[in-house]
Design a binder for these strands. Structure first.
Lengths: 198, 198
DNA sequence: GGGGTCATGTAATAGGTTACATGATTCT
DNA sequence: AGAATCATGTAACCTATTACATGACCCC
């Protein structure tokens, strides 16, 4: 199966934006930040111009006109092509229906947790718990505020998802701390990692 | 706060590997795959040689000797330096104690879910559920097998973590499907996305 | 003894991030 | 008026991934 011509998620956001109406790159970026989608789609201007160029080459979007507003730099307005629209839907379908293997940072930490002494690991995980709490509180506050403003729930599910993951991680870490504190583990750990050292 | 000289998680795995004993890059890679750590730390040979070079430049590891085994290509054996050991612990501590903002693929999908018609979205999410089940089953089978072989639980927690996330996502998706099926949503969606089109 | 694949690296390319540049607008 | 910030893009630099290369061993 051949890869997508443009793989960066930011490109998907661009296609999605252009579904509504043609616009110039900077405007896409502005909306991304404005609607908070940049919390779930990594955004930076450099990459944006890059993917716009790539999308152009792939024929998914096309320059529509070049406006010179006097004053501002010349802005090129892009529009979605038919094949771009097709790509958008195809990509979305894949993203929704098929989980992809990912590499969360915490998974890395856990893979190598063995190198830390049990009590230190437990303490650090304690710190993580409070950080997780803070994050969750932030998300709850943000979405509550947005709901008050009348934003539809569909436009907030990403944050609900984040919350669900956060809560799951919280439970997991809590349990893990307990396991680490079991004295048999401390003994086993010392046996493995401090063989000749003490 | 200045970034780490080498940021790729693969580098952390290298430092960790060299903590046990000096070795040459290919060997590090072999062990990574062998111990299954490559499920949580993205591995490919090109990147490996890259990070080894970077780690060398940063002074975290040093060439120890160059063995010519006749036959095989010349292999360079690396060893951890003191500053490398320090970096390893510092990095691990940060990784464990501080959650980082991440961009899971499914979050992207959810951010843009609105573009899909409600019933199609629900159907696709149904597909995802079965995929999630399959993944979870695989992980359970793998860890059960490993435990039988006598692997310590600490070396399997990454997979437990994955499972926890997978289960949380499963619950989330299940609930989401229900919400999408509510007829008010279908009506609202059509109002927004098909204004003049029908 | 020719066709895989193991072991080991290097080099070419593509992708993404940071830094730089510049005119307009707004704040104090 | 000078400082900060917005609006907009380009270019330089790093990082990561793919492709290429090569000699051994292993299998029928």
């Amino acid at each position: 199966m051949k890869r997508r011509a443009v793989a960066n998620p930011l490109a998907l956001a661009v296609l999605c934006g252009l579904l509504l109406e043609p616009m110039h790159p900077y405007e896409m970026g502005r909306r991304l930040k404005e609607t908070g989608k940049d919390r779930n789609i990594k955004y930076n201007r450099g990459s944006l111009y890059m993917v716009v160029e790539q999308l152009g080459k792939a024929g998914f979007i096309a320059e529509q006109e070049t406006v010179r507003d006097t004053a501002r730099p010349e802005r090129t307005v892009y529009a979605l092509t038919d094949s771009g629209r097709a790509e958008l839907y195809d990509w979305m379908r894949e993203l929704v229906a098929r989980p992809e293997h990912e590499y969360p940072r915490f998974g890395v930490a856990l893979s190598l947790l063995g190198v830390l002494a049990p009590d230190e690991a437990a303490a650090l995980l304690g710190e993580r718990l409070t950080a997780l709490d803070r994050e969750a509180a932030d998300i709850r506050a943000d979405t509550a505020a947005a709901k008050e403003q009348g934003v539809l729930w569909v436009f907030l599910i990403e944050e609900d998802y984040r919350l669900a993951l956060l809560e799951a991680e919280h439970r997991f870490v809590t349990a893990l701390i307990d396991s680490l504190k079991a004295p048999e583990y401390a003994r086993a750990w010392r046996a493995v990692f401090e063989e000749g050292e003490t």
